[in-house]
């Protein structure tokens, strides 16, 4: 029973601004369905008494003191950017955000 179908993949691609061809959507739907089904087998082992877990290790309250550390220089920050101007990252104008 596939938990992910072609429409789900098309929706996710739209959310992520990824342009996918019809063939890619078909292929991804199939591959993702296998992955989801595999992970789902975990629920077969975990009974109702096992709560959903987001962290495998029972850690909590890991904090950092509010002390300034080392930062990147402007040049270092922009080093990996495809394009920049005026010390800032230059990106295409995107209309659908806020």
């Amino acid at each position: 029973m596939a938990e992910i179908n072609r429409e789900d993949v098309a929706h996710l691609a739209r959310l992520a601004h990824i342009d996918m061809s019809s063939e890619e959507l078909d292929r991804m739907a199939g591959e993702l369905a296998v992955i989801v089904d595999s992970i789902k087998s975990v629920s077969e082992v975990a009974g109702d008494d096992v709560p959903a877990t987001s962290h495998p290790i029972p850690l909590s309250n890991v904090y950092r003191d509010d002390v300034v550390g080392e930062t990147l220089s402007n040049e270092e920050a922009l080093a990996g950017a495809p394009d920049n101007a005026d010390g800032r990252f230059r990106v295409p104008a995107i209309l659908d955000g806020e």
Partner: peptide
């Protein structure tokens, strides 16, 4: 108005030179 950011030790400042109050964490590297 903490001295540093929520998840990194970059300064929490206003009006500084663009892209200088950042660490690799803030850039999501």
């Amino acid at each position: 108005n903490t001295k540093t950011k929520m998840f990194s030790s970059a300064p929490n400042g206003f009006g500084d030179t663009p892209n200088t109050n950042i660490t690799p964490v803030d850039l999501g590297l």
